[in-house]
Design a protein around this nucleic acid. Structure first.
Lengths: 229, 229
DNA sequence: TGCCTGTGAATTTGATCAAAAATATTCAAA
DNA sequence: TTTGAATATTTTTGATCAAATTCACAGGCA
């Protein structure tokens, strides 16, 4: 089995290989908006920032670039990708193709305790929004979706979706930073209702709407920047 | 003008970085059936087989494991993944979600020369089947699809699809080896026709059928093995 | 059976080399 | 004299390798 992607946050610290811990740190930095699009990522800068050797950092960067979470410039520089309209459109297409499917699959499999955890994450999400805590919003939103995706018991599809989230993570922060994360109809509640009534089609639909809402918001927020192919 | 740029071009011409060449070698080995599912992949075995240092091999392996093309066992062993029914089902779902979309997008964008190249690949594919050349079949089949996917000008979606192909590459060989790759209605021809008449919906449909055919064949070929996990 | 040790592979470090960016410098033209 | 571009120098950074360390598994021994 695959040990990665399990027990990432919280009290997990024991005995993992260094390259794995470095990978998770970097992944969280990308996912939760601590890196901004366009920012260069140097390998030596990370060795001292994370207090790790060069090789583990290299390997973590390889994994992230392979997933598209970081971009490899022609000369040997690595940067956080800047998404243009085409990229966002593709990400929206991919998310709409996969995440509603996962939501539908999860409906029949999800347990009450998972739904409870999702509700709690959603509550914390609302409070984060109310207090203007962008980082908290990103974390809880991820946890909410991650819980659902895990419940679908489709690790390959789930992995693909997580790769997508890694791609638009940094741009999420920019978007949320600009617009106040408000005035959005709460599709998470609809999703929860669908899960509780066991309506797979409704859950799938709600997820599709949530994805559309998020990606369209992102498109709007990015539209002013220049579209460099 | 810029003498630095000239110097760069001159020196960078012959030698791609080692980790990149190692990655491509390994990717081709996986894609075209030179590794079989379940086979262990040792890092030291590759260093001497590919005559490369240890670090580049490590990094190439990281990229492949990140993409799911190789699997990281709990202990620190790496193997070529063995696909169970659930994995094949997920791959089928993902392919059906993405590849018809790419085919549809490509229809309006593809150039005559690209269609010609696809026809030629398809011809070589037919000849490879006729002569029982499994490796040739895999190569030409990949080239055929790769051409189409490239034409869609959606690099993110294309990258996701290539990741999927990496996952089922090794199992393709097993399937093709067992059953004689025959008696299949030629959906590639339908696809070409759809492209030539500019019918995006038909191209999308043909691609969906082709994917279904391939993955169902794979499911049938694997069905006798034990369903672990 | 259960513990212990040996073997081999993976992991990690540190050093070294090469390449590219940043900076300083020189020279020519206005 | 000043300005600007071309060139030389410095510095940063990435790529690679060889050695040392850590870890997992297997076979021997009580």
């Amino acid at each position: 089995m695959n040990i990665q992607a399990e027990q990432n946050q919280g009290t997990a610290k024991a005995g993992l290989p260094v390259h794995e811990t470095v990978y998770r740190s970097l992944r969280d930095m990308i996912l939760f908006g601590e890196l901004e699009p366009g920012q260069p990522v140097t390998i030596q800068g990370l060795t001292e920032h994370l207090d790790a050797g060069m090789t583990p950092v290299r390997e973590a960067l390889r994994r992230l670039t392979a997933a598209g979470a970081l971009e490899f410039m022609g000369n040997r520089r690595i940067i956080v990708p800047v998404l243009n309209r085409s990229a966002i459109d593709q990400l929206k297409t991919a998310r709409l193709a996969l995440e509603p499917e996962l939501a539908g699959r999860a409906t029949a499999l999800i347990k009450d305790e998972d739904i409870l955890a999702m509700k709690q994450a959603d509550d914390r999400l609302d409070r984060a929004i109310a207090r203007g805590d962008v980082h908290g919003y990103l974390v809880e939103n991820y946890l909410f979706h991650s819980h659902l995706n895990t419940a679908a018991q489709a690790p390959i599809l789930q992995g693909m979706v997580e790769g997508l989230w890694l791609r638009f993570g940094p741009s999420m922060r920019v978007v949320c930073g600009v617009m106040g994360t408000s005035s959005l109809p709460d599709l998470h509640k609809d999703l929860i209702n669908a899960l509780e009534s066991g309506d797979a089609a409704a859950a799938s639909k709600a997820m599709a709407e949530d994805v559309k809402q998020g990606m369209d918001q992102m498109l709007a927020g990015i539209s002013d920047s220049i579209d460099t192919e």
